[in-house]
Design a protein around this nucleic acid. Structure first.
Lengths: 206, 206
DNA sequence: CTCACGATCCACCGAATGGTGGAGGCGGGA
DNA sequence: TCCCGCCTCCACCATTCGGTGGATCGTGAG
């Protein structure tokens, strides 16, 4: 019998999931939670085998909760179930130790199979998620900005010219230009506008 | 008896909603659909009183479906139920003729009450949505980009130069520059980079 | 009909940007 | 210890961009 805990801030989604697993005889939903912190508590208390975790939640989000669970309850598998499959969501979740990543448009049947696979320690990924992962390994290192580069990009996003950004960081204009060149390389951007766009897509900017 | 149709592309959400309304004796879920076009069909066929509509769906989205329903079945009330409450989602939905706008973190009880209100022709808005609406009436016009301007901004965000954007839209480079000037004015941006940033913050860009 | 608005286009100018190819210093990990 | 990544800075140049002040045309609302 697989002991499952559902973590999602939407009551409606929790209801739908509970319903889905009602039909599976080998899966029992032992608990629910509406945010990450609560989810960790439930998973530990109830000795969950698998945690079905949403990523975007108020309070402690899914990534943080996943990482915490990996430490505090290494035997529990975390299966991400979310609406989004952007690179910026997938990678942190996998790094945090999620064993699988599904999208909410998954059919109930896929879901139960994924939970069983997760309980066995197997990885289940939605097809589009696989794409993102492959894209990532092909250019290792690329795509991660240094702290300084993030600062520069943020200043540029806020409408600062190179000169203004330089003053703000107490460095020369030339350095800003160099940082920007590196940012363009890493993000695959052609100019500051597309770099800012990529920054938002990858959630590097606010 | 209120005849309800549920339109959402996530089977899980549909299940949860069906469940929610199973307890309400005066509401009967007569149909479901996974996208806007299907939703319109169901609503017309089944003479729905209220349609519970998600905004973000593959194929025909919720806004387009809402607008179409207002024309083809004026007696049917459309109640938006979605995850997002950003200005760019709320306003088009209201303009398209939705009678209410709820978020998916609503409690089951709120949901049934909202459906009853919608059936009576009353407007129900989630509190945060009300904020957005109020914010909008205070500065009319400003902050809303025209379709063309959105296209231009998207192209710029994707790294196109003015010349490239012009070719893509089959117009002159001068027009791109004019559009950009208007975009800067409306968004309070100084250059294309900050305009793109504002575009993402206001969820005008993908 | 008239007005407002959106979309299209024009010219000119200074300033900013992007591209290239360097350079040195500094700190952490192999 | 040495190497690599990161941050800093330099010069030169073509291209692009932003600012300004116009203009015409079509459409839909009043």
């Amino acid at each position: 019998m697989i002991r499952l805990v559902i973590v999602d801030d939407h009551p409606i989604v929790r209801g739908g999931l509970r319903d889905t697993f009602a039909d599976a005889e080998d899966i029992i939903v032992v608990g629910e939670a509406a945010d990450g912190a609560e989810g960790i508590e439930r998973a530990k208390q109830l000795a969950a085998d698998v945690v079905l975790m949403d990523l975007r939640m108020p309070g402690m989000d899914g990534v943080a909760a996943t990482a915490a669970l990996r430490e505090q309850a290494p035997g529990t598998r975390v299966l991400i179930l979310t609406t989004f499959d952007s690179e910026s969501d997938v990678l942190p979740a996998i790094e945090a130790g999620a064993i699988g990543y599904l999208l909410k448009d998954a059919l109930p049947d896929e879901l139960t199979r994924a939970v069983r696979a997760a309980a066995r320690g197997e990885s289940v990924l939605a097809p589009t998620v696989t794409q993102h992962l492959m894209g990532q390994v092909r250019r290792p290192g690329a795509g991660t900005l240094t702290d300084r580069e993030k600062q520069v990009l943020q200043l540029v996003a806020n409408g600062n010219s190179n000169r203004e950004a330089a003053k703000a960081l107490f460095i020369g204009e030339a350095s800003i230009k160099t940082h920007l060149q590196h940012i363009y390389d890493k993000l695959g951007a052609r100019d500051r506008a597309s770099a800012v766009a990529e920054g938002y897509r990858r959630r590097l900017l606010t």
